Simulated scan of single mutants.
Amino acid sequence: MKEILLVCNEGMSTGFLCNKMNELAKKQGLAIHAWAIPESALEGRYHEADVIMVGPQIGYLLDSIRTRTQGTVPVAAIRPVDFGRVNALAVIEHALSLIS
């Protein structure tokens, strides 16, 4: 099971996307689990993830998040168009492409 962590300001805007990602994964038999947290909770949780996807509204924090996670997990921004359209498949594919 691959763990995809979505991070945003409060963990709420990404929560809806997580639900869609998990619904899609279940329907398609994908071994992934998506979950969302606020950026402020990152230190205590990032080690549980295989990849971290950052909401576009805090994309300016990408370098900071990479530094805080010390390169232990891939970190990337969710593409604004995928986020806006709640394109769960595109976000899953992007996340999985980052996991080695």
Results as ranks from 00 to 15, higher is better:
G84V: 13
L17E: 09
Q57A: 06
W35T: 01
C18P: 11
A34V: 00
A49Q: 06
F83C: 04
F83L: 09
G59V: 05
A49D: 05
V81H: 04
V75S: 05
A88E: 14
Y60C: 07
V86N: 05
R85G: 09
V54H: 02
A77F: 11
Q70L: 15
G11A: 02
L96N: 00
K2S: 04
H94R: 13
R68H: 08
G71C: 10
A25G: 09
D63Y: 05
A95L: 03
A36N: 11
G29F: 04
R85P: 02
A34K: 03
L61I: 03
V75G: 10
E43Y: 12
V91W: 13
M1Y: 00
I32Q: 13
C8R: 09
V86T: 12
G15Q: 01
S97Y: 06
Q70S: 08
E39Y: 10
V81Y: 14
K2Y: 12
V51L: 04
W35E: 06
I4A: 00
A90K: 05
A41I: 00
K20W: 02
E43R: 09
A90E: 05
E23A: 09
E43W: 12
R79G: 06
F83W: 04
T67C: 10
G84W: 08
N22V: 07
A77I: 14
G71V: 04
H33E: 14
Y46N: 01
N9P: 14
M21S: 03
S13H: 11
A36H: 01
S97W: 01
A95F: 07
T14F: 11
F16E: 08
I4Y: 11
R45W: 06
A90N: 12
L5N: 11
I52Q: 07
A76V: 00
R79K: 15
R45E: 06
R85I: 03
I92A: 12
R68N: 08
A88M: 13
S13P: 13
A31R: 03
Q28F: 09
I78L: 04
Y46I: 06
A90M: 08
S100R: 12
D63R: 01
I4P: 00
E10T: 15
E93F: 10
S13D: 07
M1V: 01
E3H: 15
E48H: 02
Q28I: 10
E43K: 15
H94L: 11
E43N: 14
I4R: 08
A25R: 09
E48L: 15
M21W: 11
E43T: 13
A34S: 12
